[in-house]
Design a protein around this nucleic acid. Structure first.
Lengths: 133, 133
DNA sequence: TTTTAAATGCAACCTTGTTGCGTTTTATTT
DNA sequence: AAATAAAACGCAACAAGGTTGCATTTAAAA
């Protein structure tokens, strides 16, 4: 089995993502990181963190890829379907994990469902505030 | 108000999308279209069709943008929330609208929800078939 | 038929993501 | 502590996806 190593850049990027309220894109991480490592290295680190299941990948409604720390419930450790609910703000483009919202749905026949991606979009609380003034 | 015109290229592209079982990406439309019009024109036509609310845009879990014809229910003509449920196959990369699946969820507080994007992914019926053999 | 603004083609450009390769670094083994 | 092997890195080059400006063409209203 391929081993994976902890490097300065990897730890720094993971901290950034963990400490962020919202999901971050490659471009955002790059800006927050300027001198730490190369653009290409960020791509490779993000891929590794996703494979290690430490962070997860989210596609926003406009196709931008963002990353957020996984919030695994220790009691459902071996659950097979990732059930991510996100909110994507169309004004400030922030993406937040909504752990409180639990969708229910009927599984379509003949399909094999492996992942569920549920994204609500509109205005986040901060943007609702700023508009109503 | 800005008027919009019906051109040969626009009609052809709309027909392609309407006649397709699955949602189509810009690249796919371009291939099916070869000589009809320029790459850039396809982008502009897709934007117009989306603005006119004739087709809708879907981001697959890997961030690819696809387009499908809108299937408006005439009885809920003025509904404000678009409720799109899609299935994205991780093997053949097809994206299908699942009109039969109706998710339910609780609206998160303080957020203004304008759109709902619910994408299931895994294997589509055809790919489930081909694998089990 | 004339007119005018929308739509198009083309060239140039930017952003985002990928690949190959030689060098550096981590962490295991001696 | 030194040697070692593979993982991680930087850099350059490339490819795909998407945008912009501008001169030309075309749809449709006057």
């Amino acid at each position: 089995m391929k081993t994976t190593r902890n490097t300065t850049a990897k730890s720094a990027i993971l901290e950034l993502i963990k400490n962020s309220e919202v999901a971050l894109s490659h471009a955002e991480i790059q800006k927050m990181n300027q001198e730490l490592c190369d653009r290409v290295t960020i791509y490779r680190i993000l891929d590794r963190l996703v494979n290690e299941d430490v962070i997860h990948k989210i596609a926003t409604p406009d196709g931008t890829i963002k990353y957020a720390a996984c919030n695994h419930n220790p009691h459902e450790h071996h659950q097979h379907i990732h059930n991510h609910v996100h909110f994507s703000c169309e004004k400030c483009h922030s993406v937040t994990c909504l752990d409180a919202v639990k969708p229910s749905y009927t599984i379509p026949e003949n399909y094999l469902v492996k992942e569920v991606n549920f994204t609500l979009s509109g205005l986040c609380p901060a943007c609702v505030e700023s508009i109503s003034k």
